[in-house]
C-alpha cells in the first residue's frame, strides 16, 4: 500500500471491475442455489397453504419496504423506525374507528405521513444524519405511545364498523396481497415516471450535483419520507385489522425485514439506483427465508442472524460494484 497509490487518483481497472461483477454474480447464484435446495429439503414448504402464508407475510413487509425504497434511492440510507410507526399507526387506526372506517383509514394514513414526513423535513433541511434521527424518532414514538395508551393494547371502540374484510381472503387470496400489488404498481410508476421520482433518483446519485441543477432537495427528501410514512401507515392498518387491536410488540422485526427486502432486491445503499419492483422481489425472498427457518424450527434470533449476514454481504457487494464508493 504505497503512498503513491493514495496520492495519485485511483481508478478501478477494467479487469478489476469485471472481477467484482463476477463475484456478485457468483454470490447471487450461490445464494439462490442454497435457497432452492433448502425449499426442496424442507417438509411442508411446497404447499398452497404455505405459499399463502409466505405471500401474506411478504405483503405486509413489502408494503413498508415500498416506502423504504424511496428513502434508500434518495440517498438517505434507511429509516430505522418505520416498523414502530406502523405499529403506532395500527393503534391509531383502531382508536379512530369511532370516525367510521374511511375516517379511520384517512386519519391513520395522515398520521403516518406526518410523523415520518417531519423526520424527512428535518433531515432534508438540515442534513442531519438520517439513521440517528429515525432512531430518536422511534424512541419518541414508543414513549409517547406508552404514555397515551398506558402500555395496554388499544381495542376497537363499541359499534365500530366491520373491518374484517381488510384481512380476509378475496378470491382465495388474502386481501393484503392485493394491497401489496397495488402499492408496488403505484410505487413503481410513481418513482419511475413522475417528476418527483426522477428528482429522487438524481438527488440520490449526487446531492451536490442535484443542488447545482436546482433540484429542491428539501422538498424531495420530505416527499420520500412522506411516501414511506404512508406505506408504513397502510401496513399498520392491515396489522391492526389482523390483530383486531393495536400493540407495540407488532413492530419487532418489521423495520429490519423492510430494510433487508430493499437491499436483497438489489437497490443499492448508496442511492441513485434501484426500483420498487426489485424490492417486491426482495420482500418475497425475505419472507421465503423466514418461512423456511420457521418450518425448520428456528427461532427469531436465528432469523436475525441470517438476515444480518445477508444484509452485510449485500452491502459489501453493492459497494464493491459501485465506482462512486470509497473515499480517499
Amino acid at each position: 500500500m504505497s503512498v503513491v497509490e493514495d496520492v495519485l487518483p485511483s481508478r478501478f481497472s477494467i479487469s478489476g471491475m469485471d472481477a467484482r461483477r463476477k463475484i456478485t454474480l457468483l454470490v447471487t447464484i450461490l445464494f439462490f442455489a442454497i435457497l432452492i435446495f433448502a425449499t426442496v429439503t424442507t417438509t411442508g414448504f411446497y404447499s398452497v397453504q404455505n405459499f399463502k402464508a409466505i405471500i401474506t407475510a411478504a405483503a405486509i413487509v413489502g408494503i413498508i419496504a415500498v416506502g423504504m425504497t424511496y428513502i434508500v434511492i434518495s440517498g438517505n440510507l434507511f429509516s430505522l423506525s418505520v416498523g414502530i410507526t406502523a405499529a403506532v399507526s395500527a393503534s391509531t387506526f383502531i382508536w379512530a374507528l369511532r370516525f367510521g372506517l374511511v375516517g379511520a383509514i384517512i386519519i391513520a394514513v395522515v398520521f403516518g405521513a406526518v410523523v415520518i414526513g417531519l423526520q424527512g423535513l428535518l433531515i432534508g433541511f438540515t442534513g442531519a444524519n438520517p439513521i440517528i434521527v429515525t432512531i430518536a424518532a422511534g424512541a419518541l414514538q414508543e414513549a409517547v405511545a406508552i404514555w397515551i395508551t398506558g402500555g395496554v393494547s388499544v381495542y376497537p371502540p363499541e359499534n365500530s364498523p366491520s373491518f374484517a374484510f381488510l384481512v380476509s381472503p378475496l378470491f382465495g387470496i388474502p386481501f393484503p396481497v392485493y394491497v401489496f400489488v397495488v402499492a408496488v404498481v403505484l410505487g413503481e410508476v410513481f418513482i419511475k415516471r413522475s417528476r418527483f421520482g426522477r428528482g429522487i433518483y438524481l438527488m440520490g446519485e449526487s446531492p451536490r450535483a442535484g443542488r447545482t441543477a436546482g433540484l429542491p432537495i428539501t422538498r424531495l427528501t420530505t416527499g420520500a419520507f412522506v411516501v414511506a410514512g404512508v406505506c408504513a401507515a397502510v401496513a399498520g392498518i392491515l396489522i391492526g385489522a389482523f390483530n383486531q387491536s393495536g400493540t407495540m410488540t407488532a413492530s419487532r422485526t418489521l423495520t429490519i425485514d423492510a430494510i433487508s427486502a430493499v437491499l436483497v432486491g438489489g437497490t443499492a445503499v448508496i442511492g441513485g439506483r434501484g426500483s420498487v419492483v426489485r424490492t417486491a422481489i426482495g420482500a418475497i425472498v425475505i419472507a421465503t427465508i423466514s418461512d423456511l427457518l420457521l418450518l425448520r424450527g428456528y427461532s427469531t434470533p436465528v432469523q436475525l442472524l441470517v438476515l444480518g449476514v445477508i444484509v452485510t454481504v449485500v452491502v459489501i457487494l453493492s459497494y464493491l460494484n459501485s465506482e462512486r464508493a470509497g473515499r480517499s
Binding site: 433518483y201 438524481l202 446519485e205 449526487s206 451536490r208 450535483a209 447545482t212 441513485g272 465506482e323 462512486r324
Partner: peptide
Amino acid sequence: KEEGLFLSH
C-alpha cells in the same frame, strides 16, 4: 464530476 453531472445516469 463532483458537482455537475449525474455520472451513473
